[in-house]
Amino acid sequence: MTSVLAPRRRAWTIRKYVPILGTLVLLVIMYGIGIVNYEGFYNTQILLNIFIDNSFLLVVAVGMTFVILTGGIDLSVGSVVALTTMVCATLLNDGWPAPAAMIAVLVMGALLGFLMGCVIHFFEIQPFIVTLAGMFLARGLCYVISTSSISIDAPFWKTTAQERIGVGTFTITPSVVIAGLVVVIAAVVLAWTRFGRTVYAIGGNANSAMLMGLGVGRTRIGVYTISGLCSAIGGLLLSFYMSSGDPLHAIGMELDAIAAVVIGGTLLTGGSGYVLGTVLGITVLGLIQTIITFQGNLSSWWTRIFIGGLLFVFVLLQRAVVRRTP
């Protein structure tokens, strides 16, 4: 019997990795195209710059990965990012010490996510509509604080924004290190903890997960809390990057985050995907931007067109993988 089952099992185990391998292949091809066509593209700093410019998006997308793995969605992340920058800027201008302000916004982000998770779980309302409400709420709160940009002059922000950490002959920012830490922690949690495996179980079949005695409610609320927390961390990184709080920050970022997660091979229906895939997804998005910058004669809107095309391809690829499930 083993001999009969073995080839089938191998096919299935490989199938699990098809989407992420697809992303990896795409990445290599794009990188190859860049190196062949543009002078100076091979410089590793170009690759690192992608992470420098997108560290906040990476963190937000990691949070989104948790949510999407359960089969949910979180549309509020962009607004929570903006709200974080606003609250942070206001608190700092009011004379709060940097650590206190940072902790305050992290708690706020996690709390917002927690509340949305509770509404989703206890009232059995679709995540789409609950987080849509959260999105309007957080964005609206930004404008209550101020209708215009607030600059941040705190010394810690200044130094963090300018600080460069050497990696060999190349440099990265502290934000990249923070994003990297978030990625590693998230990957470990998802792969090796009970909470992480429950996230996958809910995405596979929430009803079964419940009947198997898993803490479905706890976990579901947990992933939205994590997403809220990641949004707040992302907001902090963005405020380092921009040195300001602005109600217009991160408009549409939730969609970029979803795009990165999906291009990274996570199934929108939940239950399958990896944080590493999300990292690759962000890299793909960044590479598109970089290539278009190098090309020089294309408007930046071409980035959107490419991302749109890629999303189509990846969603179709996922469909093909899922459809063969008996």
């Binding site: 429950t198 179980a201 995405g203 596979g204 079949n205 079964s208 198997m212």
Partner: peptide
């Protein structure tokens, strides 16, 4: 109707929630 999670491994389906740690 089988109340297991199709996306997880056989071993995980048996032990999820009670995994050896």
């Amino acid at each position: 109707e089988i109340n297991l999670c199709p996306n997880l491994s056989v071993a995980e389906n048996i032990y999820i929630g009670r995994e050896p740690r």
